[in-house]
Amino acid sequence: MSDHYTVLGLYRKVETITKAGDPIREAFGVKDGDIEVLSSAAYPDGALLDDKELLHQVESRQFLFPFLMGFVGFGAGVILAGGTGYIMNLIVGGKSPFTYAPTGVITYEFTLLFGVIGSVLSLLYYAGLPNWTDRAYDPEVADGALGLLVKVYSKEDQEKAAKIMEDYGAYKIKKGVNDF
C-alpha cells in the first residue's frame, strides 16, 4: 500500500470550516472517505461537511449488528434455558423439562445482552476503534477547535491542501504521513 499524506487544519468558527470543505474536495477530487471533520461535540450530519452519502451507507448497515446479534442471543437463550433443561431432564415441581415461560424470560434477557454487544461492536467496527496509534489529531479539538482533516496521495498535494486551508481561515496547520 502506498503512502498517504494528511493535512489537518484547525478552525475556530463553524462558518469558516463549512466554507473550506468544498474547495479542497474540488481541488483534488477527494472521495467521501478521505475527508473528515474533527470536533469536540456531535454536529448534525452534513452541518460541517457534505458527507451525508457515506454516512447514510454506514447507518443503513449499522443496525444489522445489534439486530443479528439479537438473533444469536435469541438462539443462545433458547438453547441455554430450554435445550439444556430438556437434555439434562431433571424433574422439578411437576414441571415439564421444556417449559415455555422460563425459556421465554431467559431468551428475552439473552437477546438483549447480545443486542448490547452488537451495538458496541457496530460502534467499534464502523468508527474504526480502537486505534491507539498516533493519528492526525490536535488536543485543541477537545477545547472547541474544529479540525478539517484531508487525506491526499502525494507531497505536492499535501502542500497545496495546506495552502487552501490557510486561505480559508485555518489558524493552525498540521501535516503528517500515514496517519489519517
Partner: peptide
C-alpha cells in the same frame, strides 16, 4: 479512550450506537 478523535464519522456512528443502547 480507544484513540477517539471526534471525527464526524465517529460521532455519527456513536450517536447511532447510543440510540441502540
Amino acid at each position: 479512550a480507544l484513540g477517539w478523535r471526534g471525527s464526524h464519522r465517529e460521532w455519527s456512528v456513536y450517536n447511532k450506537c447510543s440510540l441502540f443502547l
